[in-house]
C-alpha cells in the first residue's frame, strides 16, 4: 500500500485540536510546556467547554500561554494567579477557571496565594509545572530544585544547609480540606501523557461539579536550564526527579 493511499482525510486519527492556535510556541525544543498545553486544549475541546473556560497565566516561561489556546485568558502578576482566578471563579461560578503556574511562581513567590486559594476550595483547576528551575529568567534555583542540582544561582549544586530542602508543595496542598483532587503526573512518555490527560479531564469534571480545588503537578523538564538534550532530560527526570517527587494520586475525593 502506498503512503499516499494512507494519508487521506478519512484515515486521519490524530491531529492538532482546533482549541490550539496556529502560533509557533516560543518554548525551547522538547519543552514539557508544549505537551501540557496540547493536552489542556484537547480536554477543553473534548469536554466542549471552550466558551466557558478562562485560563490564568503565570510569570515565567508560560507567561505567553495565552498565545496558544483559543480561550479567554488573564495574565497574572508573579505568583498571584490563584488570587486572580479566585475572583473569576466567584464572579463567574459557571465558568471553568484554571491557573497554569511554574514552580517559582507557585511554590516560591506565590506560596501564600496558592495555599489560601486551595484552602478556600476555589472551584478551579491548578496546573503546576515542576521542573526544579526558573526557566524564563535563565536557569536559577527554584524552591523545588533538587539537593546538589546545579543552577545559575547554585552553581556548585543546591546547598540544603543554606537554602533548605526542595519543597514538596503538592504534599502540603493535599493536606488542605479545600482540595478534592491532588495528583502528581508527568508527560515524558505516551503512557504518561495519556494518564495526564485523564487527570486533567477529571479535574475539569470536578470543576464543573463544583467539588473544590483540583491540583495537578506535572513533573517536567527544562532541557535548556538543565543543559541536557530533550531526550536526556527525560532520562534525568526519571532517574532524579521521580524518586523525590513520586508520581501518583495523593487525594481523590
Amino acid at each position: 500500500m502506498d503512503i499516499k493511499d494512507i494519508i487521506k482525510e478519512e484515515n486521519l486519527v490524530y491531529s492538532k485540536t482546533k482549541v490550539l492556535t496556529d502560533n509557533v510556541m516560543h518554548y525551547c525544543p522538547g519543552c514539557t510546556h508544549g505537551v501540557v498545553h496540547k493536552i489542556l486544549a484537547e480536554v477543553i475541546d473534548e469536554l466542549n467547554i471552550q466558551e466557558k473556560t478562562i485560563g490564568v497565566t503565570p510569570v515565567g516561561c508560560a507567561v505567553l500561554a495565552y498565545n496558544y489556546l483559543h480561550i479567554d485568558w488573564q495574565e497574572a502578576a508573579h505568583g498571584r494567579a490563584p488570587a486572580v482566578a479566585t475572583a473569576i471563579n466567584r464572579l463567574y461560578p459557571e465558568k471553568y477557571v484554571f491557573t497554569y503556574q511554574g514552580d517559582g511562581d507557585l511554590a516560591s513567590i506565590g506560596a501564600a496565594e496558592i495555599i489560601h486559594a486551595c484552602n478556600r476550595g476555589e472551584k478551579m483547576l491548578v496546573i503546576f509545572i515542576n521542573n526544579g528551575i526558573y526557566g524564563m529568567t535563565g536557569g536559577q534555583m527554584a524552591p523545588t530544585t533538587l539537593e546538589g542540582m546545579p543552577t545559575s544561582t547554585s552553581p556548585y549544586g543546591r546547598d540544603v544547609k543554606m537554602t533548605g530542602q526542595p519543597l514538596k508543595i503538592t504534599e502540603l496542598i493535599a493536606q488542605l480540606p479545600g482540595t478534592c483532587y491532588v495528583t502528581r503526573q508527568a508527560a515524558h512518555t505516551p503512557a504518561a501523557v495519556r494518564k495526564l490527560k485523564k487527570a486533567i479531564t477529571k479535574a475539569f469534571d470536578n470543576t464543573g461539579k463544583k467539588k473544590g480545588t483540583s491540583f495537578i503537578e506535572v513533573v517536567s523538564t527544562c532541557n535548556s536550564g538543565w543543559k541536557l538534550s530533550p531526550v536526556k532530560s527525560n532520562e534525568w527526570m526519571v532517574e532524579h526527579m521521580f524518586p523525590y517527587y513520586p508520581l501518583g494520586d495523593m487525594k481523590d475525593e
Binding site: I7, N11, L12, Y14, K16, G30, G34, V35, P190, V193
Partner: peptide
C-alpha cells in the same frame, strides 16, 4: 502502525497521524 505515540509526546503538535 499509526499508534500516534509520536504525535502525543510532540510538544509542538506538528505531527498528524493516519491509519488504515
Amino acid at each position: 502502525i499509526g499508534c500516534a505515540n509520536c504525535a502525543i509526546v510532540c510538544p509542538d503538535t506538528v505531527i498528524s497521524v493516519y491509519k488504515v
